[in-house]
Design a binder for these strands. Sequence first.
DNA 1: ATAAACACTTACAGTCAATGAAAGTTTCTA
DNA 2: TAGAAACTTTCATTGACTGTAAGTGTTTAT
Lengths: 233, 233
Amino acid sequence: MKYIVIVEDEVFMREELEDMLCKAGYKVDVIKSFENVTEQLLSLSPDLILLDLNLPCVSGFQICREIKQKSSIPVLVLTSRDQMRDELHALDLGADEYLTKPCRKERLLARVTNVLKRYEGRTNLLEGADFLLDRQTYTLYIHNQSVVLPKNQGKLLEVFLMRGQDIVTKDDLCLAIWGTTEFIDENALQVNLTRLKKTMMSLKMRQKIVPIRGVGYKLIMEGKSDESKLEDF
Amino acid sequence: MKYIVIVEDEVFMREELEDMLCKAGYKVDVIKSFENVTEQLLSLSPDLILLDLNLPCVSGFQICREIKQKSSIPVLVLTSRDQMRDELHALDLGADEYLTKPCRKERLLARVTNVLKRYEGRTNLLEGADFLLDRQTYTLYIHNQSVVLPKNQGKLLEVFLMRGQDIVTKDDLCLAIWGTTEFIDENALQVNLTRLKKTMMSLKMRQKIVPIRGVGYKLIMEGKSDESKLEDF
DNA sequence: ATAAACACTTACAGTCAATGAAAGTTTCTA
DNA sequence: TAGAAACTTTCATTGACTGTAAGTGTTTAT
């Protein structure tokens, strides 16, 4: 049974949605506290998020962005903001649907079904800047082609993606590959990193692994300074 | 540069769309003859199809269904049919978006971008009834998990999927695996088939490979007679 | 400038999954 | 019920992935 989480502050609307989706056969939870929504969502890890844009504390846009950055959960935006610019912005942030209230029940359910179907079996797809990584098989999708990475290279890339722009220590990487930091030859890690770098090169990925001397490594975007978060409106 | 094909019979609308998309930086073609549209589309194999529903000769629904069955090209339906039932039906057939005319330029372009982004790197994903198969790596997505099939098993499954409900001969299968039908031990094929069946079982796939004695094999849906095409309206 | 620490590279041998051959068993059908 | 077709299991070979070893570069503090 598919699991949906609703992020909506207006109580009446929220209960109506919850009811409708329950009756349609989904397992449903609602967010009631609007601090650290993203963390709550990630720990619930639903199959789909139904997201309002006007929320107390946080911007729905911000939530959408973070979710898309840190997971592969589909996001369906349902809002009363009917400005075109809002729609464009949400879609640009990676929202999977944008519906405006009021919205007929059938339409909403159809879109929910449709989005879930599109994601069928594709949970665990991590999004990089210009590629996707399957966290189970380490299949990498980039530039309209796909490659299965060797397990170790996949695990390394996975760690880098999960950390975003942050620095990753060698211990982190050892932990990811071998599950422990002890009894591990530093050099083994080195070799695996070299191999990952080589495949990244050969696939012409725009990301690069750069060493932070004495600390660890970092994944950066080639030839592009840190523009990160543009302002929401 | 992304490549879009427009399926629209009304000339004025068609040219407007073509113009708009060209200016937005896409390579665009239009369908002008509405017989065997599906074949035309498949041979053009664009990155996205912009589809009207009311067409001479064929139903847009039928085209959508066939495209989704035989390829992984995204379909954006743009139509003046604003009935809810049309929308639901199109989405049910696997359409990736449903927009009603008139539609603002920005909205259309945003949806086009959005759909293309969703499909980024996912060309070559073959759709089965309840699973997806990556034709390059033979990664199989089913029931929220993914597995990389051994090359031979992947090739076999690929052939079955491409043929739909049709019978596949042993020669076809040998050809797919080894590129020739000569010098091949029938038994080698047999073993590979057994292996594929076993993995299909262990993944609880609803499809089954059944032998057609003296002819070949066929992929069927478990416990479900051939209901195939429900009527469009 | 130079030594020490850190980072990287290449080659090689062991391991393990995937494959085809062989030999046998089961299931259909005339 | 015999013969053909379909299936199964086991085993040796192959090849990709991996860690080890033994190096070569590169940075930084003195």
